[in-house]
Structures are given as C-alpha cells and as structure tokens.
Simulated scan of single mutants.
Amino acid sequence: MDKRTTDFGYQKVAFEEKAGRVADVFHSVASRYDTMNDLMSMGIHRVWKRVTLERSGVRRGHRVLDIAGGTGDLAAKFSKRVGDTGRVVLADINSSMLNVGRDKLTDLGICGNIEYVQANAENLPFDDNTFDCITIAFGLRNVTEKSKALRSMARVLKPGGRLLVLEFSKPINPVFSRVYDEYSFRVLPQLGRLIANDAESYRYLAESIRMHPDQETLKSMMEQAGLERVDYTNMTGGVVALHRGIKL
C-alpha cells in the first residue's frame, strides 16, 4: 500500500485519496464553473487564455490536446484554428466537467473536429509523438504527481511540439500579494457560497494555489520532464503565469 501523502489544499492526504477529493470539488462546481470563473477573475481569465492561444503556435491541420479542458474555452478556439484537417482532443479526468464542456461546444455548433476523452494527466492514453501542441489551463495544481504528468505530456508531444501550462502562480509584488490573499481567503469562499452554494470548494481553490510550485520551480520541473527552451510570462502581476516548453 502506498503510504505517501500529498497536499489537498492545506491538508495532507494519502496519495490515493487526492484524485477522489479533487473530483468531488469539480463535480460540485461544474454547472456553475463558467459563471464563477468570470466573477472570480472579473473576466480577466479570457485575456489569459487569449495569450495562451497566441503563444501556442497552433495552425491549420495541427493536432491539439487540451488537458483539464473543462468547459471547453480553449478547445473551442483551437477548433477554429486547426480547421477541418486538424483535430482537438478535450481531455478531463472529471466526467461532470467533460459533460458540461461537450454540451457547451455542441450548443455552439463546434463538433466536427473535437473529441472528448476522460483521462488522467499522469497516464495519458495516447501514443508517443501524437500532438503538435498540449495545453493545461488551471489544472496542473490539482494533479497528484505533477512531475509524472509533465513527463506524460512530453511523451505524447511530437518533436518540435509545444507544451503550455497556464496556472495560478506567485505574485511578484509583496503589497499586491497581501491584497490577493485577502481576496482569495475572504471573498472567494463567499462568492462560492452565494453562486455555487459551495464555499468549501473555493476555499480549497485558494489553498491549492498557495501550494502550487512557484514560477522558477515549475520551469525546472518542465525541464526535468524533458522539455527544452522553457520560459514563462507573468500576467496580472504574477497571479497567473504561462509556462511554455518545446520537445526537441
């Protein structure tokens, strides 16, 4: 039996428990996920995702994997870029999020070049050297073994392919960091209670952000996973960072 522990927010839980605990969070919030994203970020998450799209280098005919793709914001944009000769796979470990994403994109009429796969980022069910680009937006911090997931992503990237990790990170200004902490631990749980009837899930969100590796640590982890020319861009004062690496 695996006796290792890992972080679930500020709690320590057994390795085998974390995936289930995270699943419960996202089953709870799936139906209100988009609404809460807009409220929590005051709509800025759309700018962060637009930057990710532009830095991806994705073009017509490419194969793209969007891990922890949730309700499909990035997948929808990639679908238009790759066209009818390309392919987008929206993958998520959580069935509730995957179903919300499928329904949303189907309602938008986006269905011809997208497929949906329930998958664990640590053990991606794809052949080596399959994708031109992989993205994971606001999902890596919920993964139990982040290094294992990064190696799995590198494995299924084609040579020359790009991995982009968009994730909450560490603010670079100490004063702003204190304001951000107040917002995260006081306002977010209250928004969760009012909008999604779930304060605890959004308290976990705030805690999971604080436990996620900082910018330089994540850069090092991506390099150790076999990616080259890894760099990152801080956005909104480092509240979010976009890391990018290439498989050579």
Rank of each mutant, 00 (worst) to 15 (best):
L39W: 00
L124R: 06
I195D: 10
V13H: 07
S220R: 08
R50F: 13
A199C: 03
V165L: 06
K170P: 00
A199P: 05
V143R: 10
N123T: 15
A241T: 10
L166T: 12
M235S: 07
R81M: 15
H27A: 14
S152R: 05
L74W: 03
D84W: 06
G226V: 12
F131T: 12
A91V: 03
H243L: 05
V230W: 02
V89R: 02
E167K: 00
A30V: 03
E207C: 00
Y183T: 03
N123M: 14
M235F: 09
L108N: 02
Q215H: 07
T130K: 04
V47Y: 14
K77V: 10
K146H: 10
G43K: 12
I134N: 06
V47Q: 12
R193N: 06
L53T: 13
S28Q: 08
L65W: 07
R244I: 13
V51L: 11
R151E: 15
P174V: 05
V143G: 04
V100I: 12
P213A: 00
M1W: 15
L248H: 12
L191V: 12
E167Y: 01
L191K: 01
Y232H: 09
L227E: 02
A241C: 10
F176W: 03
P171N: 00
V58K: 10
R178Y: 06
S41G: 09
S79E: 01
A30K: 05
T135N: 02
T5N: 10
N120S: 15
G20V: 13
K18I: 15
R59K: 14
D107T: 11
S152K: 05
S169M: 02
E207W: 02
K18D: 03
A19E: 15
H212E: 05
K148L: 14
F15W: 13
P189T: 07
V239Y: 02
G61L: 01
A206E: 01
F26S: 08
M235Q: 07
S208T: 02
S96D: 14
A68I: 11
I195P: 05
V58M: 04
I134V: 15
F138G: 08
I93L: 11
L194V: 10
M42R: 11
V143P: 04
K3Y: 13
M235T: 06
F8I: 15
